[in-house]
Amino acid sequence: MLVTQLKSKEELLTIIKKPAFVIKCTGCKEVLFPVTEIDEFLKTAEITVSDIISTDYICNTDFALKLSEKYKSEISNSLNIIVFSCGIGVQSISALLENKKVISGCDTLYINGFQGLNTRENNCRQCGQCYLSETGGICPITACSKSLLNGQCGGAKNGKCEVSKEMECGWERIYKRLELIKETQKLTGDIKVRDYLKLL
């Protein structure tokens, strides 16, 4: 359903910790999934990999759950889970593996038109600059009502967004998740400004 592009080798190598467990989601490979580039990256990147698996549609929580159970020991022996998929796939894996650092290997690119019915709990706005590795696998673009990139605004009350008492504050979720994986220092990192050229 989605079009993805491999993130730059430099960007990935600065965040990947060894050993890593690698998931390649080929559910949408008919459309555009950079299989060759990913294999090339894994070959040349010299990262210790505990296992590489190719699977279909990890955006489907049932599939993702089965996969995480099947590879339980490999996953627990890894410091990172690198997911090559669209943003939804990364979010569905990181929601299942709350204590693991999940890295997004791809940027999901914006494409025009109707992309087929694929209703999921998580959302990906195909921003072309995936932030999920920085935000504990919770997307600031879709989970925050203001799509803020540099942390929580002052509008959340009792963990709920100012827009609706039914909606959790995305940044509070991100904070709790980063606390769990001991990565809260990411909340004081570089200032981020969105690049809307990536939507053209």
Binding site: S145, L148, L149, N150, G154, G155
Partner: peptide
């Protein structure tokens, strides 16, 4: 400031911009 969301005010159907946020505006 980042600013309250548009849905809190009197033009609830307006486009919320938030192109920058309080941090990137300081920058």
């Amino acid at each position: 400031l980042t600013g309250d969301h548009t849905t809190l005010g009197d033009h609830k159907d307006a486009k919320p911009v938030f192109d920058l946020d309080s941090v990137s505006l300081i920058h």
